[in-house]
Design a binder for these strands. Structure first.
Lengths: 324, 324
DNA sequence: CTGAAAGCGCTTACAG
DNA sequence: CTGAAAGCGCTTACAG
C-alpha cells in the first residue's frame, strides 16, 4: 500500500505537507494542495489509521458488550449503534460476553478502543472497567419509558370492557428499574379499575423472562382461581409462553383472554392472532447510545433523550363479552 | 496508563528486555524475567496494541460484513465467529451494510483490519475488496449441505404416507447454489415418489424469502389446483407465511397439510404446532469461518469443513389420512 | 543473556 | 505558506 512518503515524493512536497492537506489542518496554497490531492488519488493513498491512532490516541473504534445476540432486541440495538457509528467514521466491535473469555474485555483498553456501549441486562461488568474508558448504557442520558404505552394499553383495554388485568412481572418487582409495574398500577387507578395484587405474579427468583417463565407464571395465575380478562407480560417471549398455558386450559385468545406482550419482536407478527405489544425502539436506542458515546469521547456531552415505548394494538386483544 | 518505559525502569532493565519477556521471544534469565513480570503486575501494564500493530502489521481485528442483523441466522453466525475470535485474541467488528456508508468498508484496510468475513447473501461486494485483505465466506473450504437433511425429511414424509410434496423455492431455481432443489428431486426419486414440477413454485424475480413471499408462493400453489399433502419451504419465514395461506383456505396443519421449513429459528418454537425444520448450525458456521480466516491470516490453511444441516421433525408433520 | 538503535507511519509544535 | 524534527509505544535485527 502506498504510504505518505510516496505521496510526498510524487507531489514534490514534504511529508508534513501531505498530512496538512489530508487533515485540512493548515492553510496550504491551492496549487500545492491540488498537487498533493492528485498524488493521493493517483496512488490510492489512504492514511494508515493505526499509525495515526498511535499519535492521536484515538482509534474511532468502540466496543459493544452484549449478553447474548440471540435476543432480537440487542441485535436491533447493535444495528442502530452501528448505523450512527458508520456515519461518524467509527467502527464497532461486538463482544457477546456469553461466548467470550474475560481477556477480550480486559484488553479493550490496551487495544485503544475509544469507548464502550454496555448492553448487558443483569450482569455487572463494573469490575471490567476500572480503566476509565468512556462507557454508556441505557438509563442515564438515554432512558426508556413505558409509562405512556402502558397508559395507552390500559385505556384500550378499558374501552373494550376489561376491568381485571393481570400482570406477569418477569423481572422481580423489587427491582429498582421496574417502572412498568408502577406505571401499570397508576394507569389502572387512573382509569378507575385498580390493579388487584392477587393478579400480579411476581418474578421467579432468577428473574428469567423466557417462554417457560411465562408459561409457569401463567399457571400460577390460574392456580389463584381469580377472575381476569387480560394479561400483560413483561416481554413477548413470556407472552407466548403464557399463551401456551392459556390454550392448555381450553381458553381462546382473544375471545376468552386478551394478551399483551412487550418488545414487538418482528418475527412474532406471523402468529395468529398477532400479539399486541409495545415497541421499545431498540434501533433508536442504539443510535442514541452511540451518539452519546461519541459525545462522551469527544467531550461535548449534550445529548439527553428519553425513548418512549409505543403501545401497538393487535388481534390478541378482544372485547369483553358482557353477559346479557 | 503505565507504559513499557515505566516497567523497564521499575524492573531495572532495558525496554527491549521488557518486550522480550512479555512476548517470550528470547531466553531471559529467570531472575530478570521475574523482576520484569513483577513490575508488570505491579503497574498493571498492558502493551499498547496499536503501537505493536504498527510494527507487526497485525491488529488481530477482523470485520464481519452482514446484510442485516435482523436475520437470526446471521446473528448466530456472528456469535459463533466472535466466540472463536475471542479464544484466539481477535476482536470482530460488525458492519451491517444496510445501515453503513460505503466508506466504512473502504477504510477497513487502512484501519489495519487483518481480514474479513463476508456473510452477505446476494449482494456483491467484490468491488470493495480490490485490496488483498484475506476474506472468507460460506461456500469455499467451509461449506453447507442440506442433502442429508432433505433425504431424512423425505424419508420421514414417505413413512407417514406422503407421496406428493410441494416445494416453495424462495431463491430462484436457476441460482447456482440451489443445492436444495436438486437434493429434493434426488430424494423424491430415491424414495420412489418423484417430484411433480407442477408442485414446485419457483421464486419471484427478487428472490425474496420473507413471510409475504411464502404466503404468495403458497397461494400460487393453491391456484394450480393440484393435490399435495406436504409443503417444504426454503426457510422458516416463508413456511410461516405459507401457513397463513393454508389457514386461509380452511386447511389445518398438520391434519390436512404437513409443513416443513428451514433454519430452525428458535423463536418459532413457540408456535403451535411447532414447525418441522432443518438446523443449519449457524453458530458452527461462524466458528469455522473464523477459524478459516485466522488460518488465512497466519498463512497455514488447512481447514476444510462441511456443515451438515440436520432435519428436525416437529409437530407440523402429520400422517396422511388413507381413505378407508 | 542483555541493550542501543533503527524503524513502523503518522501528527504537530516550532522555526524559517 | 512550507519543512525538519521529535515523538507516539512498540519490535527486532544486530552487536557486545
Amino acid at each position: 500500500m502506498a504510504t505518505r512518503k510516496d505521496v510526498a515524493k510524487q507531489a514534490g512536497v514534504s511529508e508534513a505537507t501531505v498530512s496538512y492537506v489530508i487533515n485540512n489542518t493548515k492553510n496550504i496554497t491551492p496549487v500545492v494542495k491540488k498537487r498533493v490531492l492528485d498524488a493521493v488519488d493517483n496512488l490510492g493513498y489512504r492514511p494508515n489509521q493505526v499509525a495515526r491512532s498511535l499519535v492521536t490516541k484515538q482509534t474511532k473504534h468502540v466496543a459493544m458488550l452484549v449478553d447474548n445476540l440471540m435476543n432480537p432486541y440487542y441485535c436491533e440495538m447493535l444495528e442502530g449503534a452501528q448505523s450512527v457509528a458508520s456515519d461518524n467514521g467509527y467502527i464497532v466491535s461486538v463482544i457477546s460476553i456469553d461466548v467470550s473469555n474475560e481477556e477480550s474485555v480486559l484488553e479493550l483498553a490496551s487495544r485503544g478502543v475509544d469507548g464502550v456501549i454496555l448492553a448487558i441486562g443483569t450482569k455487572s461488568v463494573d469490575n471490567y472497567f476500572k480503566t476509565g474508558l468512556p462507557k454508556v448504557y441505557m438509563g442515564k442520558y438515554v432512558t426508556m419509558s413505558y409509562r405512556k404505552a402502558i397508559f395507552e394499553m390500559v385505556e384500550c383495554l378499558v374501552n373494550k370492557g376489561h376491568k381485571k388485568i393481570a400482570f406477569l412481572s418477569g423481572i422481580p418487582l423489587s427491582h429498582l428499574s421496574h417502572e412498568r409495574y408502577y406505571a401499570l398500577k397508576d394507569a389502572c387507578s387512573a382509569y378507575g379499575i385498580g390493579l388487584d395484587p392477587d393478579l400480579v405474579i411476581d418474578a421467579n427468583e432468577k428473574g428469567k423472562t423466557d417462554e417457560k417463565s411465562g408459561e409457569e407464571a401463567m399457571e400460577e395465575l390460574f392456580a389463584r382461581k381469580k377472575d381476569f380478562t387480560a394479561v400483560y407480560t413483561v416481554n413477548d417471549l413470556m407472552a407466548v409462553g403464557a399463551a401456551k398455558a392459556i390454550r392448555r386450559h381450553g381458553l381462546k385468545i382473544p375471545d376468552d383472554i386478551s394478551l399483551i406482550g412487550c418488545d414487538n419482536i418482528k418475527l412474532f407478527d406471523t402468529y395468529n392472532p398477532r400479539l399486541a405489544t409495545m415497541d421499545a425502539h431498540a434501533f433508536e436506542a442504539g443510535e442514541y447510545l452511540m451518539r452519546l458515546l461519541i459525545e462522551k469521547i469527544t467531550g461535548q456531552l449534550k445529548i439527553s433523550h428519553e425513548i418512549q415505548a409505543d403501545f401497538i394494538c393487535k388481534e390478541s386483544i378482544g372485547e369483553v363479552k358482557t353477559g346479557v
